[in-house]
Amino acid sequence: MSDSLHLDNYRYLLEDEVLLQVLSNSFWYAAITVPVSIALAIAMALWVNTKLRGVGLLRLAYFTPTVLPMISVANIWLFFYSTEIGLLNNILGYFGADAVNWLGDPDISLYSLMAMTIWKEAGFFMIFYLAALQTISPDLYHAAALENASRWTIFKRITFPLLMPTTLFVLVNAILNAFKLVDHLFILTKGGPNNSSNLLLYYIFENAFSFFDTAYASALTVLLLIILVFLALLQFGVLEKRVHYR
């Protein structure tokens, strides 16, 4: 820890262009995966909360990625993404489209990672929404039915506002996850090509255990901690709000 206090490491933080790229990647990674996962999670929760036939199976399907180890499933996704025999390109070929280099193209690799992240996360967040939905009194819906409100109106005026505290809670957790979920990078892209899909925690790992620059990795850790402490304070604010809602 002592050498990480060396100011040179922090000065280097400011000059490190890779870091700039990594931070920008982390930002976009969070900015896209978080809202998409949350929107999907709400939709899933609404579906699973109805009395459709086979809801149990549906819930199982949505939730399964949560209990699967990311690192193992990444191997399957790697096959989906692979250029020559990969499933996705096979499907594209079937429709006569050109093959895409899902993981090797710097403009696409980060989005390929995002897709898997969303797949992994949405079902997990669904659970929180499901729990919240089950606490909403049916009387509210009965009242709305008497008013002849449309489904969309009911969602917009009743369900969504009542889910707001959950959304704030999930939001912070999702952003946190976006910073710590890097397992699939080890299988899919290793941060490449040319750092186009590198994320902050993976970059820390690389510096510490591939480049053996522990001091710089420590400085990066401090940077990550600052981001997280900021998020933590945000969450305290959110939790405070949650109390007011009740």
Partner: peptide, 11 residues
């Protein structure tokens, strides 16, 4: 709850 052990791999 925020600063999970994964973050501190180096330390």
């Amino acid at each position: 709850l925020m600063v999970v052990p994964e973050i501190l791999i180096v330390e």
